[in-house]
Computed example of a mutant assay.
Amino acid sequence: MERCQNDGLTFDVHDGGPSDGEPVVLLHGFPQDASAFDRMAPLLHAAGLRTLALDQRGYSPGARPPGRSAYRLRAVTGDVLALLDAAGLERAHVVGHDWGGAVAWALGAWHPDRVRTLTSLSTPHPAAVGRAVLTSDQGLRSSYMALFQLPVLPERLLLAGDGRALRGVLENGGLPPDVVERYVSRMREPGALSSALAWYRAVPLAARDTVGEVTVPTLHVWSTGDTFLGRAATERTRDHVTGPYRLEVLEDVPHWIPELAAERTADMVAAHVRGAS
Rank of each mutant, 00 (worst) to 15 (best):
G67R: 10
R68S: 12
R68I: 03
S69D: 15
R72I: 08
D79P: 05
L84C: 08
L84N: 05
A86E: 13
G88Q: 08
L89E: 07
E90F: 02
E90I: 01
R91Y: 03
R91S: 14
A92K: 07
H93G: 05
V94T: 12
D98C: 10
W99E: 02
W99G: 01
G100H: 02
A102Q: 13
A102V: 15
A104N: 04
W105T: 06
A109K: 02
A109L: 06
A109H: 07
W110P: 00
W110N: 09
R114E: 10
R116T: 15
S120I: 03
L121W: 10
S122M: 13
T123H: 03
H125W: 06
P126K: 09
P126Q: 10
A128L: 08
A128G: 09
G130A: 15
A132T: 07
A132S: 13
V133I: 15
V133P: 00
L134Q: 15
T135P: 05
T135L: 14
T135Y: 03
T135R: 14
Q138D: 04
G139W: 08
L140M: 12
L140S: 12
R141S: 12
S142M: 13
S142K: 04
Y144C: 10
Y144K: 09
M145D: 00
L147I: 13
L147E: 07
F148R: 04
L150T: 15
L150S: 12
V152S: 03
V152P: 00
L157S: 04
L158F: 13
L159R: 06
A160T: 11
D162G: 09
D162N: 14
R164W: 09
R164G: 01
R164S: 11
A165R: 11
A165C: 00
L166Y: 01
R167I: 01
G168E: 14
G168D: 13
G168Q: 14
V169M: 11
L170Y: 12
E171C: 08
L175V: 10
P176F: 12
V179L: 02
E181C: 06
E181R: 14
V184Q: 07
M187W: 05
M187H: 03
M187F: 06
E189L: 15
P190F: 11
P190Q: 12
S194C: 02
S195M: 03
L197I: 06
A198Q: 05
W199F: 14
W199P: 00
Y200W: 11
R201N: 09
R201V: 08
A202E: 04
A202R: 02
V203I: 14
V203S: 12
P204L: 13
P204Y: 13
T210P: 00
